[in-house]
Structure formats: C-alpha cells, structure tokens
Amino acid sequence: MQRNKMSYKVSQFLMFAGPAGLLFVGTVIIPFLYGLYLTFTSWDGISRTKPFVGFENYASTFADTAYWQAIGRTLIYSIFSVILINIVAFALAYLVTSGVKGQNFFRAGFFIPNLIGGIVLGYVWKFVFNRAFVAVAESLGQRNAASLLSTTNGAMFCLILVSVWQYAGYMMLIYVAGFMSVSESLKEAAMIDGCTPAQAMQNVTIPLMRSSFVQCIFLSITRCFMVYDVNLSLTKGEPFNSSVMAAMHVFNQAFTYKNYGTGQAEALILFVICAIVGVTQVYIGKKGEVAA
C-alpha cells in the first residue's frame, strides 16, 4: 500500500477524525447555524410557526438596556475574577512546588473546589453567606446583621469570591505544570550569575512560563464571561436583578420572557464579544512567547 498516496492519507484522516468531526458538526456547527437563522425570526420557543422578521431582533438587542447593563456587569465581574484567579492560582502553584511539607496533599486540597459542580457550590456558599456569616456577625455583637447577598455590591463581591475559590485550584494545576517545565539548570545558572531568587523568578521563570499564563488567562476569561451556574444558584440575579450576568439575561430573554429570537441574537453578540476578547488575548500572549 502506498502510504504517501492522497487517498490513503484521506482515509486515514477520516478514520480518526471523521466520527468526531461528524459529531462536532452535528452538535456544534449545525445548531450554531440554526441559531443564527432563529435570530431572524420572532419565534417564541414553542410555537410551530417561526415568522421571519429580518434584523428586528438585533434592533431590540441594541435597545435592550438591561442586556447592556448585564454585559457591563459581566465585564466588571470578569476583570476582577480573572486577575484574582490568576494571582491566587500562581501563588498557590508557587507554594506547592516550592517543596513545603505535604505539598501533594495541598495540591489535591486546592483542586477539590473545582470538582464540585457550580450549582452545588452556589448553594453551599449561599448558606455560608446567608447563615454562617450572619451568625458570626451577630455573635460578635452586631445587631440585625444583614447578609452580604442582600446588597448590590455585596452580591457582586460574593460572586467574585466564589469564582476565585472555584477556579484558582484548576488554574493552579496549569501553573504547576509551568513551574515544572522550567528546568532547574536555568534557574541555577541565573543564581550563579548573581540573580536573587526574586530576580530569577522575574527574569527566567516567568518568561518561560508564558504559555501557562496565556492558557490560564484564556480559560478564566471565557469561563467568567459565560458564567451561569454559580450566578443562578448563588444569587439568582437578586437583589433587584442587580446581579444578572449576561448569560442569565440571555436565558431569561429566550425562555422566561419567551423572546427566543431576541435571546438568540443577544447570545450571538455575547459570543462575538467573548471571541474577540479571547482571541486578542491569545494573539498578544503568543506573540511574546519565548522558547527555552
């Protein structure tokens, strides 16, 4: 058999990639295109007819102030979360690779929050914020202590805190891999040349870990932009719909308010925003990558 023949290569490719590719097209590409079509209809999500309305849904998307408020809120939430997640994850990774006693135990421990589903996690923290913190505050002598979740800024703070707690362990693993990939000899050479440990970290280790940063920031950005589960179970958009993130607004618009077409259009715009941010970040990050 001729291994360099085109037909052989194609059949080999199809054998491996074909089934998965087919499923990918069936479950991601086709629904995406169908969704695109739905943005041009005024379908309510359940009716048999899907009246064509042109760009009306996009017009109402741009006129939907609640949507843009939700996007703005998501941006603020994402900026804080992404920065904090990565700082905490990097610090944890440094800690558990520096040779402290029982570091494998700590690695597992920090990772565990990520194994709990977002919905459960939200309910657990809701209990902590609403009952545990309030009880502690009251036992410390504060009368009529109110839950953090009952104020606008408090709810946002809680969301960020829980997200950081949830994702820091996961990102830590990627940073741990990054730390391990930097060879000891390079660090040693830098130290012999007179670097302090901090300088070695700044000038040798961090530049060599750049790909870890790119990955972690990309993952945390996309996850924060699309946050839904924690949002639903922790705050449910309350108080006063002031913690409704973009994804939750899209869901409400499409399913609860039964404006499926508008919801779909809003989802598409959210996707575009998210894609632009993510791709830009990866492009900038990759450009300055150095090879060891």
């Binding site: 309350e238 006063f240 308010y257």
Partner: peptide, 20 residues
Amino acid sequence: LPDDHYSKLGAAFQEYLANK
C-alpha cells in the same frame, strides 16, 4: 400578565422592600 412582569416588577418591589 406578560412573561417578564414578575421578574422586572419583582425587582422593583424588592427595592421597595429594601427601602431603596
């Protein structure tokens, strides 16, 4: 009542409840 009535005015009512 429209489908978004309970959610939108619920938020407004909560503001009243919270003295906002």
